[in-house]
Design a protein around this nucleic acid. Structure first.
Lengths: 224, 224
DNA sequence: ACACGATGTATTGTCAACAATATAGATGCC
DNA sequence: GGCATCTATATTGTTGACAATACATCGTGT
């Protein structure tokens, strides 16, 4: 299970940043809603100084949009933006999978397989695969990105992009039947990494994300 | 020529962010040097409030590192980090070139060719190709990324990564003889985009960045 | 009834003082 | 002499008040 907030957050702005990020991502703060500095400061019991820094950070990772003298709003992903994110993920995570195949140490590969076994169990039990889709999926992707050993890539994906992914899952609230299929794809990717087959790992990862995107596209079309 | 600072920067923190970013990227603030809030605030004639927001933003784009209760330092790119950035660029700009081949409007393609003609002139005149390497090269890459029409990708590259690229060029101060070769590669990429050959555009862009990286690797080896 | 402008209110941007933490230097001890 | 500890200083984190900007309300004229 991923820990989204480090627990050694020393400054107020870091703590509020992290809490507010989770609140946004989990939909407790509605998409598109305005963020009032005074109000948020009061709910957290802090002054506006550190709060504004937290808001800056949230804007930096793209979760809120800020306009000078006007204020900050939680972003509302359009379907176009959603697909953009998928395209970027395809490029970056494809690369991550390739690098992971080359750099991931044996014990981390074992951990990856453990994770997948847990996911298989959960899918067997959980009829509508809610857990897997919301949290387990990202768990897998996280581990691979971490395995790439490219710090810049890790920061890009784990610090910024994945929170947007989490946000859209709440915003669009999609629940496909892809759970079991996705798990199989995950297993094939993990196998390629285990054999240090970077080429194949990238190919499979790209196909996996593309399939996920195409699934979303279908659902978007069906929606209207 | 790229404009790095928008001129409608309404708030103090935005202005100081932009100025300081340029100062760091151009080496006027030494890599690794500590950033004193009081000092910087005084030189800009502002108070520490907005200055701290500017520092947060600089940390968000990765130009400085900040530790709670200790302070902020300008980053000092290790050669390993430099190569990481090249790898990420290869993936992202490869994708950008492919998308640009599909989405770039005709007039923008013409502009791209104009830029390359100007670069050819400059290389013919400027014996050591200083201009081209420092500024012209990024000019070309900027236009292609813009042509991808993927807003998230554009933000990723233009807002964050390119400033790191500019920084390393000052930090490592490399001056290779690749100018003319790079220009040729640029022309081939532009041609592929003009024919809407996305596959080829990506291939050529990746090769171009890879060649650039390998050149840097050679120079790093030669240095020690 | 509608458009435009003035006024008052709410919100954001900025500042200067205060609190908390870390760094540097001096002192004492082994 | 080297090391730990305590103290003084400098730097960062936080706060509440003030200034500037945007928004809503009301009024006026056509």
């Amino acid at each position: 299970m991923i820990k989204h907030c480090a627990d050694d957050l020393k400054t107020l702005s870091d703590r509020v940043f992290c809490h507010t990020r989770e609140a946004i991502v989990e939909g407790r703060i509605a998409p598109g809603s305005k963020i009032s500095e005074a109000e948020l400061a009061q709910t957290h019991g802090i002054s506006r100084g550190p709060l504004r820094e937290a808001i800056s950070q949230l804007a930096a990772i793209g979760l809120i949009e800020r306009k000078p003298n006007i204020g900050a709003r939680v972003i509302q992903l359009s379907s176009a933006q959603l697909l953009e994110i998928f395209h970027v993920r395809e490029a970056l995570e494809g690369m991550a999978a390739r690098q992971a195949a080359m750099n991931m140490p044996a014990d981390k590969v074992n951990q990856l397989h453990d994770t997948l076994r847990r996911h298989a169990d959960q899918i067997a039990q959980d009829a509508d695969h809610a857990y897997f889709q919301q949290s387990g999926d990202l768990d897998f992707h996280f581990q691979i990105v971490q395995g790439s050993a490219n710090q810049y890539l890790i920061k890009l994906l784990c610090r910024d992009l994945y929170h947007l992914v989490r946000l859209y899952r709440y915003q669009f609230g999609m629940r496909s039947k892809r759970g079991p299929i996705a798990l199989t794809e995950h297993q094939h990717i993990a196998d390629a990494i285990a054999r240090s087959d970077g080429e194949m790992a990238e190919l499979l990862m790209r196909a996996h994300i593309r399939a996920s995107r195409e699934n979303v596209e279908r659902m978007l079309r069906a929606e209207q």
